[in-house]
Computed example of a mutant assay.
Amino acid sequence: MEVSDLRVALFSGNYNYIRDGANQALNRLVTYLLRHGAAVRVYSPTVAEPAFARNAEVVHLPCLPVPGRSEYKVPMMLPPRVRRDVEAFAPNLVHVSSPDFVGHRAVSLARRLDVPVVASVHTRFETYPRYYGLGFLEPAATAILRRFYRRCDAIFAPSESMAQLLRDQKMNWDVGIWSRGIDPDAFNPGRRDEAWRRGLGIPDEMPVIGFVGRLVMEKGLDVFAESIDRVARRGVAHKVLVVGDGPAREWFAKRLPDAEFVGFQGGGDLGRAVASMDIMFNPSVTETFGNVTLEAMASGLPVVAAIATGSLSLVSDGVTGRLIPAGACDRFAAALAHYCSDREARRRAGEAGERASRRYAWDEINQELVDGYMRIVRQHGEIGSGARRG
């Protein structure tokens, strides 16, 4: 089987209307598939002004805004017109990227059409309730996810640490790796811009602790702010630079009144902003990979991160940064204070991180997933043929 033999129906809750790491990975994958002759059709909610240009045919799915997070849409159903469209496209593989209502319906449709189905795992949805005072729902959320993923022929995680967690949770018996890549032209130490820092009122010698990402509570904003408070109580000079936007921005800005908030940054502006930091601090435990962690490493920054899926596969503790137990604010503060105070330690860890980031090239990473696609299609055909012979 060749890549050009693939006909992939991709179901996404958000293919290109909000820019985040998961969507950028899906778009890069589709571009790679099309470049190698595969046929791809995307099924997703759409908006009049997407965050980035579509690179494939996208069939609109009916959706509703997420309560309290209206920028996100939840696809609600697969109407007859969409089902007919899928049947006419005649995929030989269905890829679902979110365990939402339509994800469940897409798996059922694939089963009815006798088409193999795979799922990619992009975030730890089961951890979200704890950030909204609903931690008691986590076991139920885990059970729902298990039912969803077990109906798939295989699932793909972005890191070995996340894959092992999925195995431990018995989400599926076939767990592969679809990692994430880095654009070295966009993220490298040479993108550092001292003049841009000065424009924000940051002195050249002031160490900058950075945050990059959507400003939502599940990113660990409370832990970030508390840890920064404890760095300040240690009398360590520093500045906080926040890159990103989201519904928790007002809360975060009040919590960190001395921080510089520069909003959403994209493309070259994001590369400049990251490289102009001195330390990346990522306290989140919801990421399955941690794109911002890899981008910081490629930019030559030490990373202080929570011991969590994703960061465990990227950060080498004591070499490229520090891995700290989730929520351990005193230990986060100690690690941040160390890198703020020791320029040589920052340099060594940053150089080690930049070298480690070179292993992540998008084409090689996407080809590994495509190899998994073709294996699943072959296995499905062999099992089907065997069943028919029997």
Rank of each mutant, 00 (worst) to 15 (best):
D371F: 13
A335P: 13
E57G: 10
E287A: 07
G133K: 10
L26P: 00
R83Y: 06
R214M: 09
H36L: 05
L200I: 07
W362K: 12
L61D: 01
Q265E: 13
F89S: 09
A9M: 05
L109G: 09
G321S: 05
S299N: 13
S44W: 08
K219G: 07
D174E: 06
V118C: 13
S299I: 09
A25T: 00
R322L: 07
A38W: 01
Y149M: 05
N14Q: 11
S385T: 08
R192N: 12
A106T: 12
V107A: 01
D153Q: 03
H104Q: 09
V107T: 06
V223E: 02
V274N: 11
L256G: 05
V303M: 00
V82D: 01
A328L: 04
S276R: 07
A195I: 04
D174N: 10
R124E: 05
G318V: 14
E57L: 01
G327L: 08
N366H: 15
R331Q: 14
F211Y: 03
A306D: 03
D229V: 11
P80I: 02
P257W: 08
Y149D: 13
S284V: 00
H36P: 05
V370Q: 02
I307C: 00
M217A: 15
D193P: 10
A352G: 00
E295K: 05
G246P: 14
R388G: 10
A273L: 14
L10V: 15
D153C: 01
W362Q: 07
A90E: 09
R83S: 05
E2G: 05
L165N: 11
L145G: 03
G350Y: 06
R111L: 07
Q164I: 04
G386R: 14
V47G: 11
E364C: 01
Y360W: 11
Q24W: 07
G244E: 03
A88N: 04
G190P: 02
P129W: 06
D174F: 06
V107I: 05
R343M: 12
T309F: 02
P158T: 08
I182K: 08
G372A: 07
A232W: 05
I144S: 02
L78G: 11
S70L: 11
A253E: 15
F261S: 01
A53Q: 07
F148T: 03
A48K: 12
I18V: 15
G201L: 14
A119H: 03
S311K: 04
S159V: 00
R347A: 01
G199Y: 04
L336M: 13
A110R: 12
M280T: 06
R7E: 12
V115Q: 10
V242F: 08
F289D: 03
S161P: 10
E351H: 08
Y17G: 11
C340H: 00
